[in-house]
Computed example of a mutant assay.
Amino acid sequence: MNEADALDMVQNAIWTVMVASGPAVGAAMVVGLVVALIQALTQVQEMTLTFVPKIVAVMVAVAISAPFIGSQISIFTNVVFSRIQTGF
């Protein structure tokens, strides 16, 4: 394994993490913006109000996108194993 192979594997790993965590992060971001907007409009500045909706949204997003996340991790695992099998 040379530097280019190692860099390619790290790049694939980082891309897989970004794609797999995208739905959960996106859901948390959207819910956070909506709750912040509601807090700004109603002037209710309770700090703990943002946590429960975000946790629920992240759990729902992960539950809905679980097959997609699993397939992305499976694709990455297959790439890693095939590269190990061929000897890089």
Rank of each mutant, 00 (worst) to 15 (best):
S65F: 12
V31R: 03
V35H: 01
I75V: 07
L7W: 12
T42P: 00
S82H: 08
V30T: 03
Q72Y: 09
I75W: 09
V58G: 02
F88E: 07
T86N: 10
Q11R: 14
Q45F: 10
T48F: 14
Q39E: 01
I14G: 11
P53Q: 06
I64W: 12
I64V: 00
M1D: 15
V52L: 10
I75N: 09
L33R: 04
V60D: 03
T16D: 06
T50Y: 03
L33I: 14
T42D: 05
A6L: 10
M29H: 10
D5F: 14
V31M: 09
W15M: 15
Q39V: 10
A63T: 09
P67F: 05
F88L: 06
Q45S: 05
L49E: 05
A20Y: 05
E3P: 11
S65V: 12
S21Y: 08
A40S: 11
I75R: 07
G70Q: 11
V56Y: 00
G87M: 06
G32R: 02
P53W: 03
V60W: 03
A6C: 09
Q45C: 04
M18I: 15
V19D: 10
T42N: 02
T16K: 03
V60E: 01
S65Q: 14
V58S: 00
A24S: 14
L37M: 05
V30E: 05
Q85V: 10
G26T: 01
P23Y: 11
V80F: 08
P53S: 08
P67T: 01
A24T: 01
L41F: 13
A20N: 11
V60L: 03
A4N: 13
A13W: 11
F81M: 08
Q72I: 08
L41S: 12
T50E: 02
M59D: 03
M29G: 06
T48R: 08
W15P: 04
G70M: 06
F76C: 06
V19A: 09
M1V: 15
G87D: 07
I75T: 15
F51A: 13
A61G: 00
I38F: 04
A24H: 09
L41T: 08
A36I: 12
E3W: 15
R83T: 13
G87T: 11
A24E: 07
V30K: 08
N78C: 05
S82Q: 10
F68W: 07
P67I: 00
Q45L: 08
T86M: 07
Q45T: 00
A36S: 11
A28D: 02
I73P: 05
F68K: 05
V30A: 13
G32V: 10
V44L: 12
L33C: 07
F51C: 03
M47R: 14
V17M: 15
A20M: 11
P23N: 04
V52N: 01
T77P: 00
